[in-house]
Simulated scan of single mutants.
Amino acid sequence: MRARRGKTLTEADIALWRQVARSVKPLPGRAPVEPEPAPEQAVPLATDAAMRAVATALPVKAASPAAPPLAPIERRLRTQLRRGQQSVDASIDLHGMRQDEAHLALHAFLRREQRRGCRIALVVTGKGALAPALFGDERGVLRRMVPHWLRLPELRTLVLGFEEAEQRHGGSGALYVRLRRLREHGP
C-alpha cells in the first residue's frame, strides 16, 4: 500500500488504517468497503516458558479513566448571561502574568471555585496589545493558551465547558467557564 506523493506506509500505518476502516459505517445505499487483507507472515510460535517470562517481566499498569468530555454552554444559559439574568459567580484576571504564572493561577482558581460550588466563572485573558508585534514578539499569548489549557486532561475534571464571553464581560478577551459539580463521596 502506498501513500500519496510516493511515500511508503509503514506496517503500523497500514494496521491503523485497517482498524479505522473496519470501524466506519458506510453511507446509506453503499456497500461496505473491505480493507485489503494483511499479507501472511510467518510468526514464530513462542514457547510457554518464554510467554511466562515476558508476562512476569512486564509491569501491569491499570488503565487510567478517560478525561470527561467538554460540552458547549447551553443556549439558554448563554442568553441569561447576555441579558444579565444570570450572573458570573467568580472571575480571575490574568492580565500581566507570564504563561507559567497564569497557568498555575488558573488551575488554583478553578479548583477553589469548584469547591465553593461556583457554576460559572469568568476568565479574563485580555486581547493582547493592539500594536503590531516587534521582532517576532507574540501578542495575546494568554488569549490563545487559556483555551488550550482548559482542554487539558488535568483541568477536564474541573471544566464542563467554555466559550467566549459576551461583549459586556470582555468579549474576545474573556471566557465563560462552566465548572463541573464537585461529587461528594457518600458512605
Rank of each mutant, 00 (worst) to 15 (best):
L130E: 15
L58W: 08
P68Y: 07
A67G: 12
G84A: 04
G136K: 13
Q85V: 07
A63R: 10
G136Q: 07
M145Q: 13
L122D: 05
L130I: 13
L58G: 00
D93W: 03
P72N: 09
A133K: 03
I92G: 07
C118Q: 05
G140E: 03
R115T: 12
R76T: 12
R83Y: 01
K127Q: 13
R116C: 14
Q80F: 09
Q80I: 00
P132T: 00
G84H: 03
G126Q: 05
P132K: 06
L142P: 00
L110M: 10
R119W: 04
A105C: 09
D137L: 10
H95N: 10
T125Y: 04
V123C: 05
G126V: 00
I73S: 07
G84L: 07
K127M: 14
A105L: 04
M97D: 02
Q80C: 10
G128S: 02
H107I: 02
R76C: 01
A57W: 11
Q99Y: 03
L130A: 15
P59C: 05
A102I: 03
V146Q: 06
A108N: 14
F135L: 08
P69L: 11
R116L: 14
L77R: 15
A90F: 08
A121W: 02
Q85I: 06
L104F: 08
A105N: 10
M145S: 10
Q85R: 14
V88W: 06
M145N: 01
F135Y: 09
P59Y: 03
P69F: 10
S64Y: 05
R83L: 14
I73F: 11
A102D: 00
L142A: 01
G126R: 00
L77I: 05
S87W: 10
V123S: 00
Q80A: 12
M145K: 07
V141K: 05
K61V: 15
A105H: 02
C118M: 04
I92H: 00
L122Y: 01
A131N: 10
P59D: 05
S87L: 11
V141E: 08
D89S: 08
D93V: 07
Q80V: 01
L142S: 04
S87A: 14
E113T: 00
L122I: 13
E113N: 08
A131W: 06
A63Q: 12
G140H: 02
R115L: 14
Q99I: 02
E138T: 04
L104V: 04
P132M: 10
G126P: 03
G128R: 01
T125V: 09
A108T: 13
V88M: 03
R75V: 08
S91A: 14
A105D: 11
L106K: 09
E101T: 11
L81Y: 10
I73K: 12
D93A: 06
H107N: 12
A102S: 02
P65T: 12
P68C: 02
P72L: 08
Q86Y: 04
G96V: 03
A66E: 15
G84N: 01
T79N: 14
C118I: 09
P69M: 08
P59W: 03
M97S: 05
G96S: 12
R112P: 09
G128W: 01
P65E: 14
R143A: 09
K61F: 14
G84W: 09
V88Q: 08
G96A: 02
G140A: 11
R115H: 15
Q99H: 01
P65V: 00
L77S: 09
